[in-house]
Simulated assay, not measured.
Amino acid sequence: MNKTIGILGCGWLGFPLAQRLVAEGCTVKGTTTSSSKMQHLEDEGITPFQIRLSENGIHGPINEFLEGLETLIINVPPGLRSNPSESYVRKMEHLLEAITTSDVSHVLFVSSTSVYGNADGELTEDAPLMPNTESGRQLAACENLFRNSKTFTVTIIRFGGLIGPDRHPVTMLSGREGLSNGHHPINLIHLEDCIHMIWTILNNSYWVETFNGVYPHHPEKQIYYFEEAQKRGLPAPSYQREPSSNSGKLVRSTNFLNKGHSFTTSVVS
């Protein structure tokens, strides 16, 4: 696939994704908010741009970044934990305005299963959105914002909890007591499968679609995190004994699997 692809947000997921796309023969433009990372991107064959989105506008050469792009991957999380009063939607509105006046014809928007909120039971891509956090609400609003554009086609990918070589939720849960919903299923995906899914979408031109990105293995949290903590020699988290009246959400990657694709990297260490 010899295409020019832009990745807005070359962080934990975006950087190895950019490396994969370069290896596959794509011309890749990538953004970072840090001047110190510019050379790092360039060393990997990625054309670097220092760009920062804010509520007041876009800081950096956004038009130069978008110039000549056929496909844009938006991989910018809301980041509301560090700045809860910030409007992610306003940032994306500025970005949408810039994309609308560019040559971009396809947008892949990286969202999250948080848009389903505390919905109960099995959820496919057709499930109604019921976000119950500010981050989830703003992501859901931005999904609609991009979907309603008349100037490009958009595909949404909703990833579950992200894990990878240096990232796992058990490290944050270790030793904690009295946690709730231990009988609920996990909804996780490995970094390698995030990249695999995005590459598959690009390679097959799956546009105007929605994908859930969750590995199809859903043990109970209390069992899974106990075992993962033991493997790492960490104190296991403990969960409250609770009535199992609600089963918790179990997110199915129905669209991806129904197209004949599979996942490659287990969420079990």
Score class of each variant (00 low, 15 high):
2 N>P: 01
2 N>Q: 12
2 N>R: 01
9 G>P: 05
17 L>I: 11
22 V>Q: 00
23 A>Y: 01
25 G>C: 06
26 C>A: 08
28 V>P: 00
28 V>H: 02
31 T>D: 10
35 S>W: 02
39 Q>G: 12
47 T>M: 11
49 F>V: 11
57 G>V: 08
59 H>A: 09
65 F>V: 15
65 F>G: 04
66 L>P: 01
68 G>Y: 00
69 L>F: 13
73 I>V: 11
74 I>C: 10
77 P>E: 08
78 P>W: 11
79 G>K: 05
81 R>P: 00
88 Y>I: 11
91 K>W: 06
91 K>H: 08
94 H>C: 09
100 T>D: 15
101 T>H: 14
108 L>Y: 05
114 S>I: 07
117 G>K: 02
117 G>R: 03
120 D>Y: 04
125 E>I: 07
128 P>I: 07
133 T>R: 00
135 S>T: 11
136 G>D: 13
138 Q>P: 04
139 L>M: 15
143 E>N: 04
144 N>H: 14
149 S>H: 13
154 V>S: 14
159 F>G: 02
161 G>P: 02
161 G>Y: 13
174 S>E: 10
175 G>R: 08
177 E>L: 10
177 E>K: 03
178 G>K: 02
196 H>N: 05
206 Y>S: 06
211 F>T: 04
217 H>W: 15
218 H>W: 09
224 Y>M: 02
231 K>Y: 10
234 L>H: 02
236 A>I: 02
240 Q>S: 07
241 R>C: 04
242 E>D: 04
243 P>H: 02
243 P>L: 01
250 L>I: 10
252 R>T: 07
256 F>D: 06
264 T>E: 11
266 S>A: 15
267 V>R: 03
269 S>I: 07
